[in-house]
Design a protein around this nucleic acid. Sequence first.
DNA 1: TACTTTTGCTAACACTGTTAACAAAAATAA
DNA 2: TTATTTTTGTTAACAGTGTTAGCAAAAGTA
Lengths: 200, 200
Amino acid sequence: MGLSERKLRQQQELKDQIISCSREIVENEGWAALSIRKIADAIEYSVPVIYKHFENKDAISSYFVEEGFDKLFMELDQQINPTKDVSLKLRQLAKGYWLFAVNHPKHYEIMFGLGIPSCDRINEYENIKKVSDKMLNLIDEAILASGKEHVDRYLKLKTLWSILHGIVAIELLSLNTRENICPSAVLEDAIDGYIKSILV
Amino acid sequence: MGLSERKLRQQQELKDQIISCSREIVENEGWAALSIRKIADAIEYSVPVIYKHFENKDAISSYFVEEGFDKLFMELDQQINPTKDVSLKLRQLAKGYWLFAVNHPKHYEIMFGLGIPSCDRINEYENIKKVSDKMLNLIDEAILASGKEHVDRYLKLKTLWSILHGIVAIELLSLNTRENICPSAVLEDAIDGYIKSILV
DNA sequence: TACTTTTGCTAACACTGTTAACAAAAATAA
DNA sequence: TTATTTTTGTTAACAGTGTTAGCAAAAGTA
């Protein structure tokens, strides 16, 4: 018959171990250092055991992509104060995006790390929709406030996301200056222009 | 004594062959498919010969990064009409940046493909300065025209570059829609906001 | 106890970048 | 021309990578 409760729990524990070991390797040594054999060593099992829990190595990365978008969503949610006016909320969203990237650079790297694989399949992920919906909410509010109902909300979403990603990619990942943890001047500058482009 | 003229020429030819074979592999199969052994097969020499011309595989990628920044510079130069007003020239610069990315996506990928390696060493490249100088020229002109001399030109450079990169990364590399070859609506939208943030 | 399923292992395959050691060819010196 | 040195290019190995087939031992079931 089906597997016993205990076995299912043990399997889940093993999967969790694979995830947490992977996390540690990536945090300490970067994505390039993550290998199936290294994970196997860490969990003290042989290599094929990994493949019982993840179809392949890509599936492990994908897990962190999903987790990343979830964390991003929560960070945005935490930063945005619904009672404030839309202009400030857009700034808060930008700050949240920035904070997520700064605090979870490895996640950001694999989520958007165009490196080669992940961006092709960016539409395959679930949690990404939660994030874009959150952005769209604010954009709709801004469009409404500006009275310019003809503005394309999806265009504005793409523009906003592009600006945020560009800043993070250039400033955070290029120059490894972990100094300016607070939202950078570049971010303020770019978001100013963006807000003007809707509200003014 | 020194190597004969003929030998030097033959060596250069071999190096050129390594480059052109690498280019072909990357164009057809992507960066992930580029391997030393594959290059060796293509040039019909054994593996260690490659290492006579390039210190390691990274050096081959770096060659294309340099080449890429050179091509980018030339594209910007071609698009910008010096006789026009600064607002239009900024739009032309953006168009040039976009066109380069669309026409040389593999170059763009390795230049900015944060994948892992290249962005760390973005300051090590020579040609990048030519590009940023070109951007700074226009920014200075715009600042002068606006009368706002207190504006930080390097902040504006970073903001501009971030916006351009963000758009290219999100729109070009994520969704592989080669349909909209012309500067995208997102680009227009974002650049509008940027220009306003200086000139208005 | 006998049988079946699950579990986890070893060992291999086909790759990767890189390099040491060596043979053949070419250039130079006697 | 012959002997010596230098250059050139090879094979073969090392230490990795992702992935999987085949098998033995342990666990669960009849």
